[in-house]
Design a protein around this nucleic acid. Sequence first.
DNA 1: GAAGATTGAAGCCTCAATCTTT
DNA 2: AAAGATTGAGGCTTCAATCTTC
Lengths: 168, 168
Amino acid sequence: MVDGVDFADERLTAIGLFAEAFAGLSAKLTEQLAEHGLSGVDFEVLIRLARSPEQSLRMSDLSAQTSLTTSGATRVVDRLVAGGLVCRRACDSDRRSTYAVLTTEGEHRVADALPGHLEIIDKWLVAPLSDDQLDGLMSTLRLLRDGVNPCATVGTSDVSAGQPAGPR
Amino acid sequence: MVDGVDFADERLTAIGLFAEAFAGLSAKLTEQLAEHGLSGVDFEVLIRLARSPEQSLRMSDLSAQTSLTTSGATRVVDRLVAGGLVCRRACDSDRRSTYAVLTTEGEHRVADALPGHLEIIDKWLVAPLSDDQLDGLMSTLRLLRDGVNPCATVGTSDVSAGQPAGPR
DNA sequence: GAAGATTGAAGCCTCAATCTTT
DNA sequence: AAAGATTGAGGCTTCAATCTTC
């Protein structure tokens, strides 16, 4: 304690628990994805493309929907293009824009990884909780998310990809 | 859908909500800490030192208690030493070990940052929830954390620091 | 001039290798 | 040989600057 400051405040425990639970889940998912040659960010990008119209997204929309800056999106897509999982396509109507498009190989890779991914979520997030607990967690998380990140709920249909997102 | 794989499975939404809520909270905290010239990892290290006996920790214990590898701990402490917030001290009983020790300046810095930090936690995590909701969230998170990270509960007294922790 | 995308520079973290001490 | 800590190399992300198109 210094000047009435308590280094063991219970609120630190609360946020710490949040961090540990998420980090633990995240580690399991990262490990599973690695077995398919994907990083968490790779997967996040691929799955967002997979569920988008034409399986494609403008670079700027991609960065808005993920945990990445536009710069970060450029680098990730660079790597995915190098790996043959994504390709770039120019936009006809606005030549400033570029689309990232999922390739057939990319679609198969994410389809291969997804079942195992869902198993991990089942095992470590869904199964340990009762139905009521899971429902409660979801509504609580949605409430918190809407507070800290109101944007997330507009535009996209509240559907989220499966990976972390550190602070910008 | 490819081969019966559903890219919009509700479990992805669940984990995504978790990720978004945590990322949002994390961003608020990171922003606040930056006002005090600290990164999230800096704060995590400083607060763990602050609440440890002698306000010090062996490098290997520090890495075990944080989201860092031993290598990562070395780098962070390097920076904190350069900033005057921490100093290194050799261990008498085992000359392989090194202690990271909080300096007076380090203690003041973390004490300065903490009140604002707690305010953020109040505002975005505690206040938005009812007492029951918060209690429910805490017990659910503890349950999940114990599943994915059984180690966290041994040794340390379940007390967690306030920052994120990406996967290793 | 602003929007969209990319690039160079720099910081942070991890892995593997290394050095010292046990 | 193992444990503890550090270091070099490399990958990933961001910020700021740049280039093109609107």
